[in-house]
Design a protein around this nucleic acid. Structure first.
Length: 491
RNA sequence: CGGGGAGUAGUUCAGAUGGCUAGAACGCUGCGUUUGGGACGCAGAGGUCGCAGGUUCAAGUCCUGUCUCCCCGACCA
């Protein structure tokens, strides 16, 4: 922890990130390995994200449902590449009972309670859901089936980081079943668009999306697509994914339906998800050395009113503050008055800054006499004196301004740090210095991808539709290529 | 699983060559003064020094074992 201060962004971005999270009171490490305690404020942000995304999901004709946490081992292992991908990071339930130890001082696993078939704590829910789908789907009339689930997931990852990668995490996973390949493909691409739209609109973040390489593909998918955001240090963060599962799962889970001609068919499936990692992305995308910066549309508190008073004038100032509150809440819901008299004003200013509240309203003796308030915007820290009569309009306007200015900044970063690279020498230079995204042709061979990763630590992020059909030479081997991929170092 | 580092107050840490009632800062509690950018003074609470053995008149400090956590890589939303 840095005391009363900051870790300069340039020096150690990773430490800076952890610092922001600690100072904004978003989360902390739990005593359980790799797990995180999401604190109330961090959870409030997650809830805002959930709410916004859930709305979009429902509007696109998807219903929410909930499936079990436990997956029988046999389910998980039906799809060969699926189990291969997750085998190394599973939490497994083998027993169901404890008993007192012989010395009576503790408990131990009762060997008698061994399960006949082990249960896997879900690392993702394809298998447990599709087992059920096989019973739900019998006719073409049952399709398309579109379900979403908000749930927790356990993946025993080697290395964890708050929000970006934790052993247990919260997410949303959508699963759809279609009668045609074309429809499934459209669904997969539609979800990418949805995530990107959500990121732009709510999180004020711009990002790229496209197809992932064979090596980065989801275990069990025909194709995986990803949404890639850029952090302020130029590294990539996979924001969300969308998978085209083809008939891989329907075949092994025996999901079949009778089509209009009376023929038995295997449907085409998709799955897509985003997780609490979004909170991490949000933190990394906008924060500065003073702490978290939240876009208004995701801030649990959009405006905080800080009355500045002494014992003598406390009552009058609070009364005036409440008037301002009434005025602002005519149109804005998430407004808070910080009436605490046991901490200093400076402390409050600092605290709300660390928490990234978009607008702070300072109200003291001076403002009251002038019939005004001071608006301070979090992103630029710019102060503005505003007459009481204009407060509401100004606040509404300023919130919009902050939202769009954060988005513009994010977009600018993305564009300014994305470069078309032709020479491997230059490619290496980019990733040894400034980082960012490199647009480069790649022949598609695994060897080239691995060598690039080994030599530069940059990996293929995705192939955008704009990158398809771009003629050039593979950045590594020089062979003719028609695909321009995004390369980056990633979190 | 490799490579580093650390376990002492709620937190971050200090405690050479073993030594007497184990310390600081921040945080916490109380009282008073404060309050326009992280307030100050005074008083207080808070510790089986990760765990188990061993050496010794004496162990936070030395030895052996053991457990745990953190950081950097490989894996991933």
């Amino acid at each position: 922890m840095t005391e009363k201060g900051i870790t300069p962004r340039g020096e150690n971005y990773s430490q800076w990130y952890l610092d922001i999270i600690e100072r904004a009171e978003l989360a902390e490490n739990s005593s359980v390995r790799g797990c995180m305690v999401i604190k109330p404020y961090g959870y409030a942000i997650w809830e805002k994200i959930q709410k916004g995304l859930d709305k979009m999901i429902k509007e696109s004709g998807v219903e929410n449902a909930y499936f079990p946490l436990f997956i029988p081992k046999s389910f998980l292992s039906r799809e060969a590449s699926h189990i291969k991908g997750f085998a190394k990071e599973c939490a497994i339930v083998t027993h169901h009972r404890l008993k007192e130890t012989e010395d009576g001082k503790g408990v131990e696993v009762d060997p008698e309670s061994k399960l006949e078939e082990e249960l896997i704590v879900r690392p993702t829910s394809e298998t447990i859901m599709y087992d059920t789908f096989s019973r739900w789907i019998t006719s073409w009339r049952d399709l398309p089936l579109k379900l979403n689930q908000w749930a927790n997931i356990v993946r025993w990852e080697k290395r964890t980081r708050p929000f970006l990668r934790t052993t247990e995490f919260l997410w949303q996973e959508g699963h759809t079943v279609h009668s045609t390949q074309k429809e499934a493909k459209e669904e997969v691409l539609g979800r990418l668009a949805m995530y990107t739209e959500f990121a732009r609109q709510y999180l004020a973040m711009d990002m790229y999306f496209g197809k992932k390489s064979e090596s980065e593909k989801f275990a069990g998918a025909v194709d995986t697509y990803g949404v890639e955001a850029m952090m302020q240090d130029g590294k990539a963060l996979q924001f969300g994914t969308s998978h085209n599962l083809g008939q891989n799962f329907s075949k092994v889970f025996n999901i079949q339906y009778t089509d209009k001609k009376g023929e038995l068919k295997y449907p085409w499936q998709t799955s897509w998800g985003v997780s609490t990692r979004m909170v991490g992305a949000l933190v990394m995308a906008h924060s500065d050395d003073n702490g978290l910066v939240l876009p208004p549309s995701i801030a649990p508190v959009q405006v905080v009113l800080v009355p500045i008073f002494k014992d003598l004038n406390k009552e009058k100032i609070i009364r005036y503050t409440k008037d301002v509150y009434k005025e602002i809440t005519r149109k804005i819901d998430n407004v808070k008055i910080d009436e605490r008299d046991f901490v200093s004003v400076g402390f409050k200013f600092n605290e709300w800054e660390k928490k990234g509240i978009p607008i702070r309203v300072e109200i003291g003796e001076k403002e009251m006499k002038e019939g005004a308030v001071v608006l301070v915007r979090r992103d630029t820290l710019e102060k503005r004196n505003v007459k009481y009569g204009n407060v509401l309009d100004e606040v509404v306007l300023l919130l919009e301004e902050i939202q769009s200015s954060l988005y513009e900044k994010s977009k600018e970063l993305l564009i300014s740090k994305t470069h078309r690279i032709e020479e491997y020498k230059e490619f290496k230079k980019v990733f040894s210095e400034n980082k960012g995204f490199a647009l480069a042709n790649w022949c598609g061979s695994k060897e080239c991808e691995e060598n690039i990763k080994y030599e530069t630590k940059a990996t293929t992020r995705c192939l955008r539709t704009e990158g398809e059909g771009v003629l050039g030479k593979c950045i590594y081997c020089g062979k003719e290529s028609t695909e321009e991929w995004i390369f980056a170092k990633s979190y």
